[in-house]
Design a binder for these strands. Sequence first.
DNA 1: TTGTAAGCGTTATCAA
DNA 2: TTGATAACGCTTACAA
Lengths: 360, 360
Amino acid sequence: MSSKNRKKAKKITIKEIAEKANVSFSTVAKALNNDPLIAKKTKERIIKIAENLNYYPNMLAASLRMKKTKSIGIILNDLTNPLYYETIKIIETNLSKRGYTIILSDSNYNLEIEKKNIITMMAKQVDGVIISPINSASENIDLILKNDLKAVFIDVIPQRKSISYVCINHNTAAIKSTNFLIDKGHKKILLLLGPVNLSSSETFLRGHLETLTLNNIKKDKSLIIYSELSINGGYEIMLKIYNNQEYKDKFSAILCISDLLAMGVYKASIELNFKIPEKFSIIGYDNIFVAPYLNPPLTTIHAQKTKVGIYSTEILLEKIEKNIKDNKKIDFEPYIIERKSVCKIKKSNKKNHYKIRKLK
Amino acid sequence: MSSKNRKKAKKITIKEIAEKANVSFSTVAKALNNDPLIAKKTKERIIKIAENLNYYPNMLAASLRMKKTKSIGIILNDLTNPLYYETIKIIETNLSKRGYTIILSDSNYNLEIEKKNIITMMAKQVDGVIISPINSASENIDLILKNDLKAVFIDVIPQRKSISYVCINHNTAAIKSTNFLIDKGHKKILLLLGPVNLSSSETFLRGHLETLTLNNIKKDKSLIIYSELSINGGYEIMLKIYNNQEYKDKFSAILCISDLLAMGVYKASIELNFKIPEKFSIIGYDNIFVAPYLNPPLTTIHAQKTKVGIYSTEILLEKIEKNIKDNKKIDFEPYIIERKSVCKIKKSNKKNHYKIRKLK
DNA sequence: TTGTAAGCGTTATCAA
DNA sequence: TTGATAACGCTTACAA
């Protein structure tokens, strides 16, 4: 039998089963859906035939008819960021346990792509989405609301009322980390944020500045830097800054809004040959799985990634399956995990700092 | 206007547009699909109306009719493994550029779940799948073939003829890494594999054993350990072995089939207070993005993850869109990236080794 | 250039 | 207990 002769597997449908079983196709449908009205005998017969024919149902047809797809859209911003790993894993586990399937997409921190992704999800008739939106006030949020797309937002809190979200409180993160550095004697802090249009950058910045104010620390615009959220982003910033006279002695600590940025600083530290934390103390955000393995182990703000996954799917499934209308708003309080990348600043330095301030 | 009164957004279809435009719904369909037969004027009118109504097509219906879903199934084994993310990222980027959507699932190295995942993909009528199968000879492979599901296999090479795959050559990986260790003077190598039923464990083991034979090194079954493919897997193995008399002085290097396992060894090294590479040289596999940041930077075998993503989507799309039947078989030759986790073994040790052998 | 109608594979209502 | 039929929202061949 040559491979040319191999019979092309025709997709078998309930009609074919009906033919073989000598019943109508609607009987088959009922039998396969375990309808109690169908006689046990015929039911068993039909099921056996279906198995023999290697039948599996066309969910497209069923979904079209039932207006339920058992698919959930997941819209994230950079699949390469380990921040997402744990969240995706638990979402997949929980959803597939409940018979749902995941449609995954990546917006790349780009509002146009995010819009396209949302529209695709609607076109594919997902039962709901879990989305990490780029901007808390963008039109894309309204697009979701206007179309009654069931959604739970993660990571950033949209500026709308009737919305469910599960987030890490970035404000708390900023306050705790800034205070942590100040407590260690750092008054000159370089802040590395993500892209400007990213709402979490904004929120974090606000918390940071407020904390500086409360501690009577002068703000310095040049110490706030927006960057791509990646190792390379942090790395390139450091390359630019390190030998720049403008930044000489201007900061003793670097607060990074993502552990990836912190890793970029680590990378630069090797190339530029500066020591962490002796030269610069570093603090990250997210507590990605590698943080304890870095050299030195990274002090960072822990984000409850698994919890975000668990709660977001739970809330979404309630909306979908129990048609629950009221919105749940959950935010987790992140906390510092102290490791070895932040050191106490020496008194002498502090003095030095005051001197400089007085000289101004 | 109370929120109760908010008009529920009815999903609008071509029928509604047809009504508003005073044409038949098939005219609308053609207009929206840019059918050249439709008059420019009406076309523009219809498109405008569609936009105003905020119409987006129901792809379910279209897919059912056209027998094309523009969805691709991705079936992997542990979404928590960083190994996958570079691949997923590029697959997502390339596919979404071409109008495809990704349905993602995780088999957890479990053949039952893998089977379920494959069936779900078929039920959802994906146009094709990219799958990292657990076992190269499992029934699940046949399930795919029997149903003419368009597929490209990654990571493991199925033992079937008419199949397309894009893989890293695990045999080469094993040979190169084993030789690398031997060249550095290591003759007592502990091999940390993944789960037993995982084909890559098998392939790797074969290459390793052959290389030992070629180098006249005695094989020792107790030095081959199967483990869960995770940080914790490697960690727990080390905890068990380290203080076990049976293993005392039995190995000087650890060859890990995954960088995650290597990280587990690193974790254990801190807890048990042994030095890498002084006490044990470590070599990993995959070259995940963190490898250079570990302490010490991990010497590992580089796997071309991005290339796997690029080629697998390319091949799959050719099958789907150009209906190309012949199978492409690509395997990449992995190569060692030397960093700091392997050291040369001291002469004295070598002598010691011979002594022990003679004593046997 | 536009409209009619059949069909994709299901589910679900009603009739037999 | 089973069967006929309409419907889900779209594409497409054919008729007008």
